[in-house]
Every structure is written in structure tokens, then in C-alpha cells.
């Protein structure tokens, strides 16, 4: 549990994962990668990775196959839009109609 006081006199943060809050809960849609279509997954090497390149939040990891950190993904859908193999689909979160 955090208990140290904030000694800063103006607002600031250090660059670290999650410093902007758990932004994943802003989401209504989340991306799902079909590794059967995903180019790096199919080729087994660092090819394409446009999803990683275009993600404005830096939550796509350039692993093989690529993975998405859903704790911080805001569900914007840019990865799905940019994927040349149409391997990413945006799926409605539970509780959203």
C-alpha cells in the first residue's frame, strides 16, 4: 500500500508502466489477434509488426507472435485498422451493448 507523501509541488511523474492510471478500463472494444492470419506468427520471425508500430499507447509488444497488454489498451482499434492481414478484430467488452 502506498503511504509515502508526494513531495512534488507541481504535477509530474516518472516514465513508467501505468503512470497514467489503469487505462484498460476505459475500453468498450478489445483487440483479438487471429494468429492463423498474423504475418509474424505465420512466418515465425519479426516481419510486419505494423500493429506494434502504429499502437499509440505502446501496449503492443513486438514479440513473435505479437501480444497486447490489455491492462492499458484503450481499445482504439488502430491496430485492427492497420493490420494488412486483417488478423485483428475488435470484440465488444462484456457489459457493453
Amino acid at each position: 500500500m502506498a503511504n509515502r507523501t508526494d513531495e512534488n509541488i507541481s504535477a509530474m511523474c516518472t516514465p513508467a508502466l501505468g503512470e497514467g492510471g489503469r487505462t484498460g478500463d476505459w475500453r468498450t472494444l478489445h483487440p483479438v489477434i487471429d494468429y492463423g492470419k498474423c504475418i509474424p506468427a505465420q512466418k515465425g520471425k519479426a516481419a510486419c509488426l505494423l500493429c506494434w508500430l502504429y499502437c499509440p499507447e505502446g501496449v503492443v509488444k513486438a514479440t513473435i507472435p505479437p501480444t497486447i497488454d490489455l491492462n492499458y489498451c484503450k481499445g482504439c482499434g488502430i491496430c485492427a485498422e492497420e493490420c494488412p492481414a486483417k488478423a485483428i478484430s475488435m470484440v465488444l467488452e462484456e457489459g457493453h451493448e
Binding site: 502506498a2 503511504n3 509515502r4 507523501t5 508526494d6 512534488n8 507541481s10 504535477a11 509530474m12 511523474c13 516518472t14 513508467a16 508502466l17 501505468g18 503512470e19 497514467g20 492510471g21
Partner: peptide, 17 residues
Amino acid sequence: NPVMFADLRENSEGVLC
């Protein structure tokens, strides 16, 4: 000057900002 939310926020170093 990052965006502030309505409530206090625990940062990655465990400080309640």
C-alpha cells in the same frame, strides 16, 4: 504536468501522488 484525475493516484514507486 500529466493529466490528473479526480482522486489520488499511486505511482510506480509506491507514492500516493
